[in-house]
């Protein structure tokens, strides 16, 4: 029994250390948002009094409401579409196997490894010939069929019990009904994880929106933060405030969806 207590203590200790290491930069970022730039540079890490001034400076430079609206439209649309299209494909690859589709899947994995920089120029040519330059459509569409998320859903589907499908088929459900009414509800934790990941990726996406979006009224928060850092003497108070604001939506989504990771809450599939 003593051994159990020691082990428990070790678990708590290592989790606490990890928590401290993980939280510290975040804490520093939040504290930085309340300080003046020169205090931040000299390493001050206590709450300051400059939050309101930083906020006013930020508002003077950036149309915050517009920027957040842009980021939200892009990230929400991308998340919904990506989850729909990519989970269908991941399920399809795993449940209905054939030699041809296996080959396609292997090729997809290789496509995933091509650095985006190599594909950007031709993709940009296509987008502008289709007169989609400077549109959110152009930012979202190329990311919707995410090989990464297809791959993730395929791997997660391996844990989806075959008996459930068989039972549903005996009940006369069509394949799309099985997907919608049996698979989808029982994979809630998988969807929750994918939502967090896709939303975050899309919200933080930088290089492609930078190339495609041209006018100020279309800029997303990531592009704005990048331009805030451009000065010869950057104002770190304003930069850190904007990074704190940029982080909030992903954090909220994580807070809401992490309940799906609590064991037993959604009830076992069986």
């Amino acid at each position: 029994m003593n051994f159990m207590i020691v082990r428990r203590a070790a678990v708590y200790l290592s989790l606490s250390i990890a928590t401290f290491i993980s939280i510290f930069p975040f804490y520093w970022m939040v504290v930085g948002a309340t300080n003046e730039s020169r205090d931040i540079v000299t390493g001050k890490s206590t709450i300051g009094t400059n939050l309101v001034a930083n906020f006013q400076n930020l508002l003077a430079q950036v149309d915050l409401a517009q920027v957040f609206w842009n980021s939200a439209v892009v990230a929400i649309a991308a998340t919904v579409l990506t989850l729909a299209v990519s989970s269908l494909a991941g399920y399809g690859f795993e449940i209905f196997r054939s030699r041809v589709r296996e080959r396609i899947f292997q090729i997809l994995l290789l496509l995933l490894s091509i650095p985006f920089a190599a594909l950007m120029v031709p993709l940009f040519v296509m987008i502008s010939r289709a007169h989609l330059s400077n549109t959110f459509t152009a930012v979202i569409l190329p990311t919707v069929a995410s090989i990464f998320i297809i791959f993730y859903f395929r791997q997660a589907t391996k844990a989806f019990p075959g008996e459930l499908r068989d039972a549903a088929r005996v009940d006369g459900l069509k394949e799309w009904q099985i997907f919608l009414y049996v698979y989808l509800p029982s994979m809630r934790s998988t969807y929750a994880a994918a939502t967090i990941i896709v939303f975050m990726t899309s919200w933080n996406n930088y290089l492609w929106p930078l190339i495609v979006l041209q006018t100020e009224d279309k800029k997303t928060i990531t592009l704005v933060i990048s331009s805030l850092t451009s000065a010869y003497t950057p104002d770190f108070g304003v930069i850190l405030l904007s990074t704190v604001l940029a982080t909030l939506p992903t954090l909220i989504i994580f807070f809401v969806l992490q309940r799906q990771f609590v064991q037993g809450m959604l009830g076992s599939v069986k």
Binding site: V85, L88, A89, G92, I95, F96, R101, I104, A145, F179
Partner: peptide, 8 residues
Amino acid sequence: GWAFIMPA
């Protein structure tokens, strides 16, 4: 099999 992966 094809229908599910087609959109992607």
